[in-house]
Simulated scan of single mutants.
Amino acid sequence: MKLIVCMDDKNGMAFNHRRQSRDRVLAKRIMELTENAKLYIAPYSQTLFQAERVVVSPDYLTCAGQNDFCFAELENLNGYEDNVQELILFRWNRVYPADLYFPFHMENWSLIAREEFQGKSHEKITMEVYRK
């Protein structure tokens, strides 16, 4: 699968069972990146993405195929790294309170692309694409 995760400068993903932040431009960018594939999400993320090709399931991380995308917000990703072929990280370039952190060891990954763009509520969002 191709995993999409948003995080802060300390790799925080969520706090108190809620996303750290939300940005309308970022959600649109994710829909553009995944336009030719299915996007698997948890029910919690359903308000961010409205499209026929979006698959909502509590088990979305195990349902996605090799070329499908998954957007993770509140899930502990320990144990999923072997199932991920591509990793797309969106960095808020801020520090938020967090109690759920991104767990992958990045020495196993190669950065293949980096792009910065302006969001609606964030002056700068950084997108990084990694492959094994």
Rank of each mutant, 00 (worst) to 15 (best):
S57D: 05
I125S: 08
S110G: 15
A42P: 10
E35V: 11
A64N: 02
D99V: 08
G79I: 06
A37M: 06
F71N: 08
L61D: 02
V56M: 03
E73F: 02
V55A: 01
R131Y: 03
Y101Q: 03
V25K: 12
L26Q: 04
A14R: 03
F15L: 00
P97D: 04
E35D: 13
D82R: 11
E107K: 13
E32Q: 11
H122G: 03
I41T: 06
F90E: 11
I41D: 07
S110T: 15
V54G: 07
L87S: 02
K10N: 13
E86M: 12
E73N: 10
F49K: 02
L100Y: 02
N78M: 06
V5Y: 15
I112P: 13
Y130D: 12
V54Y: 03
A72M: 05
V54E: 05
T47H: 11
I112M: 10
K38G: 09
L87F: 04
L100D: 01
I41N: 10
D68S: 10
T126D: 14
P58G: 13
C63Q: 15
L89T: 01
T62Q: 12
L48P: 00
R22V: 03
V55K: 12
F102R: 07
L39V: 02
Q118A: 15
R18F: 07
S110D: 15
C70N: 04
A98M: 08
K124E: 11
G119W: 08
L89I: 08
G79S: 11
L3N: 14
E75H: 03
A14K: 03
D99T: 10
H105M: 07
L61E: 05
V84W: 10
K28R: 15
Q85N: 14
E116N: 15
N83A: 07
D23S: 04
N11E: 12
C63Y: 08
L61T: 05
E123V: 02
C63K: 13
Y60D: 05
C70M: 04
R29P: 07
N67K: 11
R18N: 13
C6R: 05
S45P: 01
L111G: 15
E81Y: 06
E75N: 08
N83D: 07
K10F: 05
K2M: 12
N76T: 00
T126I: 13
S57W: 00
V95T: 12
D8I: 06
A27H: 15
D99I: 06
H105R: 11
K2N: 15
V84P: 13
N11T: 11
G65M: 08
Y40L: 06
M1W: 12
M1E: 12
E107V: 08
K132S: 03
Y80I: 05
G119H: 07
Y40W: 15
N93E: 09
S21E: 10
F104V: 00
L26E: 05
R19E: 07
H17M: 06
Q66D: 12
E123K: 09
L74A: 09
R19V: 00
H105Y: 10
D99Q: 13
F117R: 09
G65T: 07
D68G: 09
R53S: 14
T126L: 14
V25P: 04
Y44N: 12
E35R: 15
M13W: 01
N16K: 14
L48Q: 01
L3K: 14
N108P: 03
V129T: 14
N83E: 05
E123I: 04
T34Q: 09
A98Y: 05
T47D: 08
N83V: 01
I4S: 12
F69L: 02
R53Y: 11
D9F: 01
P97I: 01
